[in-house]
């Protein structure tokens, strides 16, 4: 079983977000870049699938600027076998079709049985690269996966539907599936894993720049506030006093 897991590096949730001068992204200086949350679950699922089958290979794949190598290295330190980095000259590409085309070019020779990705990235959140890649490579696809079962060359996944419903779907391989957060408990890298990761290979590939753009972000900005919010200021005690008053006298629920 040869498994690719797509990982993306995104700004961590607690990073300060100041808009860059070109108004296309954020100033990266104080941004704490992390592995996209649902991608971390996808890495764990890939490792567990390899461990359960007792053989095979997990390859961590990422598209992004040079800093992205840290995210690949993190997957390697958790147990992925090798990495592929499609090196983007642009620090914040936001064209899913173009990214999927670059991934497809870089991965088609690898003949993966299974591609795992996170459901969506926490930066742009277009939520489609894994499915686009699956279609481009002629694979079956499934999204919002909350459980996987692999047996005799076929894959069964539990898909999340809306409003608390689920559904089991069987897919023929090769398949590309996108993983929903919460499917497992991602492991932390061990010290041995971190040391071992330094020796693992990360292959760098240049994307084919000839691909035409399909869509583009033209401006990034701070949302307009529409609702009037009373911000309760002061010390904790003052805030508590006002809150109690609001609950008792204004909303009248206590």
């Amino acid at each position: 079983m040869k498994i690719a897991v797509l990982v993306k590096q995104v700004p961590g949730g607690d990073s300060p977000l100041r808009i860059s001068d070109d108004q296309l992204w954020v100033i990266e200086d104080n941004v704490n870049f992390i592995t996209n949350e649902s991608d971390a679950y996808a890495v764990e699922e890939a490792l567990q699938l390899r461990e359960k089958s007792g053989e095979g290979e997990v390859v961590a794949v990422s598209f992004g600027p040079e800093r992205t190598q840290r995210t690949i290295r993190e997957a390697l330190s958790k147990g992925a076998d090798r990495g592929i980095h499609i090196e983007d000259s642009y620090p914040y590409s936001s064209d899913p079709l173009k990214i999927a085309t670059a991934l497809s070019e870089a991965l088609k020779e690898e003949q993966f049985d299974l591609i795992l990705s996170g459901l969506q990235s926490d930066d742009y959140g277009f939520g489609q690269v894994g499915v686009l890649l699956g279609e481009t490579l002629g694979m079956t696809t499934a999204t919002l996966v909350m459980s996987t079962e692999l047996s005799d060359g076929s894959l069964k996944v539990k898909r999340e539907l809306e409003s608390g419903w689920f559904q089991w779907v069987s897919l023929s391989l090769p398949a590309s599936i996108s993983i929903q957060s919460g499917i497992n408990t991602p492991r932390y890298p061990s010290l041995k894993g971190i040391m071992g990761a330094k020796k693992k290979e990360i292959k760098s590939v240049a994307p084919d720049s000839a691909t035409a753009a399909a869509q583009a972000i033209s401006r990034v900005y701070i949302p307009q506030k529409t609702k009037k919010t009373e911000m309760i200021e002061g010390t904790a005690d003052q805030q508590v006093k006002r809150l109690a008053e609001v609950l008792k006298k204004e909303i009248r629920v206590v």
Partner: peptide, 9 residues
């Protein structure tokens, strides 16, 4: 943040 997005073609 919010972003303006447009199709290229």
């Amino acid at each position: 943040l919010v972003a303006d997005v447009a199709p290229a073609g």
